[in-house]
């Protein structure tokens, strides 16, 4: 057991898979000799050499296209798109190429690759380097989409993503890179498509993802201590496949559902889950499904404004407290 940062967990997860399988290769901008702009891939170049860990030009289409061509002919590439916002300049691959290949070719070809990317806000990078784009990827049939919130999940889900035969978009959260967590020694392998209950509770279910997970957990402690509301916090972890069993079972127990989403308001993952719960668990609900999101705005750079925009523990407490007031079972 060791304490590891989320950042170091990325490198450890990749290294674990590269050691296991020679067909795993890694490419991206500044990822090799420089160790990544977020220093999340330090040491991989030195350990695995220039043939397996490759710096690329600033050519996101070439990065993802090359990863795809390698994947469909036998390799297991991991590609980095430095900031998730840059997915927009190579979205053809994410939207049109990776996810359609198997279907259009009637199963003749597959695309087993991982795109890892620095997602999310809170780092004062402004509107084009701070977005939460997980919803851009969730909406496309054929992709798998994960967003870990802790170092151990980074390693386990990375391993699962690399070993999966589908294209997996792996959203790392920039504002979590410095977060530390306990990680056991030895190989770690998790399962895609599994949510995790991080704090059991009986009064309300809070669903959160990535940076919103620690904020939801902090809010749950305050809600318990100061409002007597016992919240169950579920880390969704995987948007596709979606662990609806865990979510529906939790809602069945608590009767209340809140989602905490970093994305701007419209078409967030929480809206899809709200729709599923409304369809399939309506009679379990004792109150409205409430989504707590960033307002429908681009993110500002100024620290006080960005802090106002992103959901935080006090806002979660305030919102849940108000909705739950008088309806606690």
């Amino acid at each position: 057991m060791a304490e590891l940062t989320y950042r170091d967990a990325v490198a450890r997860g990749i290294a674990q898979e590269m050691e296991r399988d020679n067909n795993v290769v890694f490419l991206g901008e500044d990822v090799a000799k420089a160790g990544g702009v977020f220093k999340s891939t330090v040491g991989l170049y030195e350990k695995f050499g220039p043939l397996r860990v490759r710096d690329t030009p600033i050519s996101e289409q070439a990065i993802l296209g090359a990863a795809m061509g390698a994947a469909m002919t036998g390799l297991r590439p991991i590609a980095e798109i430095m900031f998730a916002d840059f997915a927009a300049v190579c979205f053809d691959y994410i939207a049109n190429e990776f996810p359609k290949l198997r279907y259009m070719t009637n199963g003749q070809l597959g695309c087993p690759l991982v795109v890892r990317t620095g997602n999310g806000g809170g780092a004062r990078f402004g509107a084009q380097h701070s977005q939460s784009i997980e919803n851009w990827t969730m909406m496309i049939p054929g992709l798998k989409v994960v967003a870990p919130s802790s170092p151990i999940d980074v390693i386990g889900l990375m391993a699962a993503a690399v070993r999966d035969d589908n294209p997996v978009i792996f959203h790392e959260h920039k504002s979590l890179y410095a977060v530390k967590g306990e990680v056991p020694d030895g190989e770690i392998l998790d399962t895609l498509g599994t949510a995790r209950i991080l704090r059991p509770g009986k009064d309300a279910t809070i669903l959160a993802l990535a940076l919103m997970v620690p904020r939801a957990l902090a809010a749950a402690e305050t809600l318990a201590a100061e409002h007597g509301i016992d919240c169950e916090v579920v880390d969704v972890r995987s948007l596709v496949p979606l662990d609806t069993d865990t979510i529906l079972n939790s809602v069945a127990r608590t009767g209340h559902l809140f989602t905490v989403e970093e994305n701007p308001r419209l078409c967030g993952w929480g809206a899809e889950i709200a729709s599923i719960v409304a369809d399939e668990a309506f009679w379990d609900l004792d109150g409205p499904i409430v989504r707590i999101t960033t307002p429908h705005i681009p993110l500002p750079a100024a620290d006080h404004l960005e802090d106002l925009a992103l959901p935080n523990a006090p806002r979660i407490v305030e919102k849940i407290g108000r909705v739950m007031n008088g309806s606690v079972r």
Binding site: A62, G65, A66, M68, G69, A70, M72, L75, D92
Partner: peptide, 14 residues
Amino acid sequence: GAHLPIACGSAWRA
């Protein structure tokens, strides 16, 4: 244009 980088990837594999 999409398949030019994809062909590069196949060549990279080789």
